[in-house]
């Protein structure tokens, strides 16, 4: 069976140990986590985990069912359309030639987030595939450091 990438939005009770239940489930059953983002859902007792995973159809079906089986799981959103965004921070030395950087930032919803005596930090937010592309292109500025976030997703 074919490996498929999937974004899961998991709504759980915001309580002690819930993250270890989920990461333990993935580790114990040999499922992949490509990225994981957690934050409370505003004005509720719930948290949202956005998990990017991959596997064949049977594995993905099991992942969803096993997530449901955890007692604190309220909802697993797997299908339908998502707006999906990741973020990346890139630190670039100031002595680089910034030719073309502006256009690139524009194309990837980017800005200059901060700067120092001899570096700038740029920030971009986009879907995972495009972040991949951006990080390839940004290499030409010899970045000192790259930090990439997990995905956040919203079903529409």
């Amino acid at each position: 069976m074919k490996e498929i990438r999937r974004v899961l939005s998991v709504i759980v009770t915001n309580e002690d140990g819930v993250l270890s239940r989920i990461s333990g489930l993935f580790a114990g059953r040999g499922y992949n986590i490509d990225s994981l983002t957690v934050a409370p859902v505003p004005e509720t007792n719930l948290s949202r985990l956005t998990i990017v995973t991959c596997g064949n159809e049977r594995v993905l079906e099991q992942i969803v069912k096993q997530l449901h089986k955890l007692i604190p799981t309220y909802k697993v959103i797997e299908s339908g359309e998502f707006v999906e965004k990741e973020m990346a921070l890139v630190k670039i030395p100031l002595n680089e030639d910034f030719n073309g950087l502006d256009a690139m930032l524009k194309a990837y919803n980017g800005t200059i987030a901060n700067s120092g005596e001899n570096f700038i930090v740029i920030m971009v937010a986009d879907n995972a595939k495009r972040i991949d592309n951006f990080l390839k292109t940004v290499k030409r500025y010899n970045p000192i450091q790259i930090v990439r976030s997990g995905s956040v997703a919203m079903d529409i």
Binding site: Q62, K65, Q66, K69
Partner: peptide, 8 residues
């Protein structure tokens, strides 16, 4: 009764 048993 356990959905995760089905199709596993």
């Amino acid at each position: 009764i356990d959905p995760s048993s089905i199709g596993k």
